[in-house]
Simulated scan of single mutants.
Amino acid sequence: MGVKDFLQRCPLVAILRGVKPEEVEAIGDALMAEGIAIIEVPLNSPEPVESIRRLAARFGDRALVGAGTVLDPADCARIAAAGGRLVVTPHADPEVVRAAKQAGMFAVPGFFTPAEAFALLKAGADALKLFPAEAASPAVLKALLAVLPKGTAILPVGGVEARNLAPWRAAGAAGFGIGSAIYKPGDSAATVAAKARALVAGLGGA
């Protein structure tokens, strides 16, 4: 299954910035129970590769697990070695995209302009992350989709929460990266489950 297949199942990507390896499996269980099957561990979290290894071992093909905040193409190999299948960046770097694809992973790089979007797609990006979404709008997304290749999947990330999912969905968002609205350091698995439930309910309204 590709990125778009997982997004069709549930268009939410849980960004677990700051999660620790010893808590990540329980949090992963909570997310999966609520239907969220794309999990991103940013590399500026404690021991991120170990968290990715544990999630990948626990869920296998049932979840799409990978790394976020990937800045260095060289990191792609160790993410893949840990079982990660997804690389997400905050910036428009075709080199990271190419490294992720060479390592057999999916790449969802960050972009903000049409020029960046086209360059990343040319490098092999599987989907694109509109970041920071707070500085854009659903109208911007709609305009981007009008010029990008048909079927391009764009995920707004930054400031997305249950109450503002609907306008982004209406504009054509294929999914959403959710950070603090789904997990903050110190959140219990039960807290994450409740946040996830609210977000999935918000999708129903969208």
Score class of each variant (00 low, 15 high):
198 A>T: 04
174 A>G: 14
107 A>D: 02
176 F>A: 11
123 A>L: 00
84 G>R: 03
49 V>F: 00
201 A>K: 08
204 G>P: 00
38 I>W: 08
155 L>K: 05
50 E>L: 15
25 E>Y: 03
133 A>P: 06
187 D>T: 03
135 A>D: 08
204 G>M: 04
13 V>M: 10
50 E>D: 15
15 I>T: 11
135 A>L: 13
188 S>G: 13
188 S>D: 02
49 V>S: 02
177 G>I: 00
26 A>C: 12
149 P>I: 06
101 K>R: 14
181 A>F: 04
67 A>T: 04
162 A>Y: 11
206 A>N: 03
50 E>T: 15
98 R>A: 10
56 A>D: 09
20 K>P: 11
49 V>M: 02
25 E>Q: 14
179 G>A: 03
180 S>K: 12
194 A>E: 15
122 K>T: 13
153 A>Q: 11
200 V>W: 04
65 V>C: 09
48 P>T: 13
91 H>W: 00
152 T>H: 15
15 I>N: 09
58 R>F: 07
80 A>M: 05
129 K>E: 06
18 G>N: 13
77 A>H: 08
55 L>A: 08
103 A>K: 01
149 P>M: 06
38 I>S: 09
110 G>C: 03
162 A>F: 13
170 A>R: 14
86 L>V: 12
161 E>N: 15
164 N>K: 07
74 A>E: 14
63 A>I: 11
55 L>S: 05
202 G>F: 08
152 T>K: 12
8 Q>I: 00
197 R>Q: 13
27 I>C: 09
161 E>F: 06
59 F>Q: 07
23 E>G: 00
20 K>A: 13
102 Q>A: 15
80 A>N: 07
170 A>M: 07
77 A>N: 05
89 T>L: 02
179 G>P: 11
45 S>R: 12
185 P>H: 12
21 P>Y: 04
80 A>W: 04
69 T>N: 12
169 R>W: 15
141 L>N: 11
99 A>L: 02
99 A>P: 04
36 I>L: 15
